[in-house]
Amino acid sequence: MKLSKTNPNTINLIKSLTKQASAENAPIWKAVANDLKRANRKNKEVNVYHIDECTADDETILVPGKVLGEGNITHNVTVAAFKFSKEAENKIEAAGGKCLTIKDLMAENPKGSNVKIIK
Rank of each mutant, 00 (worst) to 15 (best):
K2P: 10
L3N: 04
S4E: 09
T6V: 13
P8Q: 09
P8L: 07
T10E: 12
N12Y: 01
N12M: 12
L13G: 05
L13F: 03
L17N: 10
T18Q: 15
K19Q: 15
K19T: 10
Q20D: 03
S22T: 13
S22F: 05
N25T: 13
I28C: 06
W29R: 10
W29F: 06
W29H: 10
A31D: 14
V32D: 01
L36P: 07
L36H: 05
K37C: 12
K37F: 02
R38I: 05
R38F: 04
N40K: 08
N40W: 00
K42A: 14
N43W: 13
K44C: 09
E45L: 01
E45F: 00
E45A: 11
V46K: 09
N47E: 14
V48I: 14
Y49V: 07
Y49C: 11
H50V: 13
H50A: 15
I51C: 07
D52M: 06
D52V: 02
E53P: 00
E53V: 04
E53H: 11
C54Y: 08
T55M: 08
A56H: 15
D57F: 05
D58M: 10
D58E: 08
V63G: 03
V63S: 01
G65L: 09
K66P: 05
L68S: 13
G69C: 01
I73G: 09
I73Y: 08
H75K: 15
N76L: 12
V77Q: 02
T78W: 01
V79E: 04
F82W: 08
K83W: 10
F84L: 03
F84V: 01
K86M: 03
K86I: 04
E87H: 06
E87I: 12
A88C: 04
A88P: 04
E89P: 00
N90M: 15
K91Q: 09
I92N: 08
I92Q: 09
A95Q: 10
G96T: 08
G97I: 05
G97W: 03
G97D: 06
K98S: 13
L100W: 00
L100Y: 03
I102C: 05
K103S: 14
D104V: 01
M106F: 06
N109M: 05
K111W: 03
G112W: 02
G112Q: 11
V115L: 06
V115S: 09
K116S: 08
K116C: 06
I117P: 00
I117C: 10
I117D: 04
I118V: 12
I118Y: 02
